[in-house]
Design a protein around this nucleic acid. Structure first.
Lengths: 208, 208
DNA sequence: GTCTATAACCTGATAGAC
DNA sequence: GTCTATCAGGTTATAGAC
C-alpha cells in the first residue's frame, strides 16, 4: 500500500502515523497479540502519545476496524442493490469486488472472525444485513430464479467460496498444496471458477 | 461431552483432569488468551502441578492439538483411500465424517487456523498430505471423472463448503441470518446440500 | 503535544516445604 | 505428587516535567 510509505514519513501528523501503524500491526498480529508498544514503535513515537490520541488500545482498534467494515460493506451494497443488472452479472461483480478487497486485505477475514468471536468488535448488525442483503434486489432475483434454494445456505456457501482460501491460507501453504508464490494466481483463477460454480448451484433444484 | 463430567470428578488423576481442562479452555479461548491459571482452575488444581506434568504451556497445547489432528486425519484417511467405493460415495462419506467431527468440535477449525498462522502448531505436513490426499484413490477417481478440473481448487472449495460455516459462526449469528438455536439444524441441512453441490461441480467442465 | 518514569497488574515458570 | 510463595519479565495506562 502506497499510503504506508507516505504515512511513515516525518511530515505526517503523529495521529495519522499511529493509525497507519495500528492498521498494519493489528492486521498482522490480531488484537490481543498487539501491544501498544508495537504500534508506537511502528509509528516511530511512544506509548504515551498513542494513548493520548486514542485513549485506549481497544478504542484504537475499533477506529481501525470500523473503517475497514464500512469499506467492504460500502463496496458490496451498490452491487447487491443494483436494479439494472441481472443475477448472473451480480454474481460476477460480487466475486470480483470481494476478491479485489481481499487481495488488498488478505489478513482481514481472520481478524474479523476472531474479534467478533471474542466480542471485541461488531462487524455487522442485524439491521445492516437486513438492508444490505435481505431487502436487496439480489435476494429478489435469487428467489425468482430458484424458489427451492434456501437463500441463507446459498449465501453462506458463496461467501465461503470467496473467503475460505484467505482464511485457510496458512494451512494451505503448510500442506504444500499451493506454494506462497502461487497463492495470488490461485486466487485469480477463482475469479473465473467461483462464478461458474455459483451459477450451477442456482440451476440445481433441491428435493422437497 | 460425557468425558468432561467423568474427568472433572475427584477420582480421576490430576494429569487427566488437566488434559481435559486444557482441551476445554484452549478450544474456547485459543492459545494466547489461555493462562495456565485458567487451566489449573478448571482442573481444580494449581499452577505448579500443571507445569509439573506438562513442563510448559506450549507443550501442553501441543499434546492436546496433536491428539485432535490425529483424530480427524485418522477418520478421513480410510475414506479417501478406500478402493471399493465410488467417487460419489466418497463425497458423501467425507461430508458426513467431517461434519460429525466438527459438530463435536465446533471451535477447533478456528483454533487450528489461528495457531498454524502464528506457527505455534503444525497441523499437517507436506508428506502427510501427499500420502493422505495426493496419492489417494479419491484423487485418481477425481481425475478420471473430470480431467479439466484443478484438484487443488476443487479440494479447497469442497473443504470450504464443509468448514466455513463453523469458522464464520460468530459473524453468521451476529448478523441474525441464523439464530443460535437453529445453527445445528442449518448444519444438518448441509449434509444433503453440500454433496449435491460438490457433484455438480464435478460435472462442470472448465474452458481451456 | 511529546516524552520519561512509574504505577498497578498479570503472566509463565520454579524453588522449596510438606 | 502437591502446594504456597515468589521471581523475573512484560502489559496497559497515567502522572508530571518540558
Amino acid at each position: 500500500m502506497i499510503l504506508t510509505k507516505i504515512a511513515t514519513a516525518d511530515s505526517v501528523s503523529a495521529e495519522l502515523r499511529i493509525k497507519i501503524a495500528a492498521h498494519k500491526v493489528f492486521l498482522a498480529k490480531g488484537f490481543a497479540a498487539t501491544t501498544v508498544r508495537d504500534v508506537a514503535k511502528e509509528a516511530r513515537t511512544n506509548v504515551a502519545s498513542v494513548n493520548y490520541y486514542f485513549r485506549t488500545k481497544k478504542n484504537l482498534f475499533n477506529v481501525i476496524m470500523t473503517e475497514k467494515a464500512q469499506q467492504i460493506l460500502g463496496a458490496l451494497g451498490p452491487v447487491l442493490g443494483n436494479e439494472r443488472t441481472t443475477l448472473d452479472q451480480k454474481i460476477d461483480s460480487i466475486v470480483n469486488c470481494y476478491l479485489d478487497f481481499l487481495l488488498a486485505n488478505p489478513d482481514l477475514p481472520m481478524l474479523i472472525l476472531n474479534e467478533v468471536k471474542k466480542k471485541n468488535f461488531e462487524f455487522i448488525s442485524g439491521a445492516q444485513i437486513n438492508k444490505l442483503l435481505l431487502q436487496s434486489n439480489f435476494l429478489k432475483q435469487l428467489k425468482a430464479v430458484n424458489g427451492t434454494l434456501d437463500p441463507v445456505q446459498f449465501f453462506i456457501t458463496m461467501v465461503g467460496m470467496i473467503l475460505f482460501p484467505f482464511v485457510a491460507k496458512p494451512v494451505i501453504l503448510q500442506t504444500g498444496l499451493v506454494k506462497e508464490k502461487d497463492f495470488q494466481s490461485m486466487i485469480q483463477e477463482r475469479r473465473a471458477l467461483v462464478p461458474v460454480w455459483v451459477k450451477v448451484m442456482l440451476k440445481t433444484r433441491q428435493k422437497r
